[in-house]
């Protein structure tokens, strides 16, 4: 399936400055894997050392948070749009 992945501004520098990447994948996880294979520098910003998506990285499939679908196993269809949307967090205590 051909899907589009929308890259948020802070990560575009690691994706040849592109805001949209087209990929072939059957699931959201496959699409993200193909994305980080093509653009290796994206990996450390999307995945933690445990190999899981960082907690502040949100992935939407056509405006639906994949946490409420089948997470990275969510199947995709031709023309679907996957969005990577940051959560922003911080605070004074280490």
């Amino acid at each position: 399936m051909a899907v589009k992945v929308l890259i948020p501004t802070p990560l575009r520098a690691y994706a040849d400055k592109q805001d949209t990447i087209e990929l072939a994948a059957a699931t959201v996880g496959e699409a993200l894997s193909a994305l980080t294979t093509r653009f290796g520098d994206l990996k450390k910003h999307l995945y933690g050392e445990n190999g899981k998506l960082r907690s502040f990285v949100n992935v939407y499939l056509n405006d639906e948070d994949i946490r409420y679908l089948e997470k990275e196993s969510t199947h995709v269809n031709d023309g679907d749009v996957i969005s990577i949307v940051p959560s922003i967090a911080g605070g004074k205590l280490g």
Partner: peptide
């Protein structure tokens, strides 16, 4: 920035 800030920061 705290360590928590760093852990949750985005580049750029």
């Amino acid at each position: 920035p705290s360590e928590f800030d760093r852990e949750h920061a985005w580049p750029w």
